[in-house]
Computed example of a mutant assay.
Amino acid sequence: MVIPSILLNFLFPPPTSLFVTTMSVIGISSLTNAGYMEIKGKHMQYSKFLNEGVAKKENETKLSSRTGMLWFYTPALLVGLSSFLMFPGQDLRFVLLASALTVHFLKRVLEVLFLHKYSGSIGLESAIIVTLSYTLSTATMIYAQYLSRDILDPSIDLKYIGVGLFAIGIIGNFYHHCILANLRKEGDKEYKIPQGGLFFLVICPHYLFEIFGYVGISFISQTLYAFAFTLGTIFYLTGRSYATREWYISKFGDKFPKDVKAFIPYVF
């Protein structure tokens, strides 16, 4: 894959790996399509969108929300942890990338176990799709980084900026997840309009900070695959945020503040 020379100031040259190239194309195209489907009302079947936007399937297998979300994140966490054993003695950039991915999914697993409150289930098909996306993208990102080990670093080093952005993203995402969890008392399954943090500006600040986190990861990595996956994630979360705002408006009507955007303050 050929990329403009000016981008080589920021990126490692793409590896001569058919697997990584294929995964780059699949990742950005599938996530972009998933974001478009969210805007069109065809949602991934979990959280508030369970059974919305799709025809109900008879005898469809469903998982509890806790079990489904553990499926989402645990394999990717294991990939991150195992990378330290599979690729020992790597440089600082590799260690930072593998650490960021491991911390990201460890946080997710701990939130599933100890923070989130649940009100529904997750379709098995959606659980498999999301699990494969997280697991394959994590493995590919680490492998692409490994393939760049003997290549001269890009002239513009973004890895320390990436660490800062990742820290902002993971802290901001956790903070707003705490707000969402505290909206409900034990046993309460009703949705409420979130308040606190940046919820007065956007309905999905947790997605905004998740994007900060992934931008940070791509800055740490500086591989084409990492940027492609991050761009695809931005497209998907844009669609999911739009759909979430529309859902809140449909559910709460005039009670939902119209100046609250989807996930970019004052803009979208």
Rank of each mutant, 00 (worst) to 15 (best):
D254T: 10
F212T: 00
F19C: 10
T238W: 08
F10L: 12
T140G: 01
A243G: 10
L147P: 02
I26M: 07
S29Q: 10
N173M: 08
I122K: 00
F256L: 08
S155Y: 02
P154H: 03
S126M: 10
S64E: 04
G35P: 01
L152W: 02
L81I: 08
N9F: 15
V25C: 07
G216M: 11
M44R: 07
V20Y: 00
E52A: 14
G253L: 01
K62C: 02
T16F: 14
Q222L: 00
K159C: 07
T22F: 08
V79N: 04
N51P: 04
V25P: 09
F227N: 13
F94L: 07
A139I: 08
L77C: 00
L31Q: 11
A34E: 07
I168R: 11
P154D: 05
V54K: 09
F227E: 02
S221V: 03
Q222D: 07
N51D: 15
S133L: 15
V54P: 00
I220C: 06
W71A: 15
F252H: 08
P154C: 03
G120F: 02
S218C: 05
V260C: 05
F209N: 03
D259E: 12
A226I: 04
T238M: 14
K189Q: 15
I249D: 04
Y146H: 12
V267K: 10
L11N: 03
G27E: 05
A34V: 02
Q90F: 10
S83T: 01
E60C: 00
F12Q: 03
K57Q: 02
Y160N: 06
K261L: 09
Q90K: 13
Y214E: 02
Y225P: 00
M141F: 09
V260K: 09
P257G: 07
M86D: 11
L237W: 05
D157K: 11
Y236E: 11
L183I: 12
A34G: 01
Q90L: 12
F49A: 04
L113Q: 14
K57W: 00
S17F: 11
P88A: 04
D150M: 08
Y214S: 06
I171L: 08
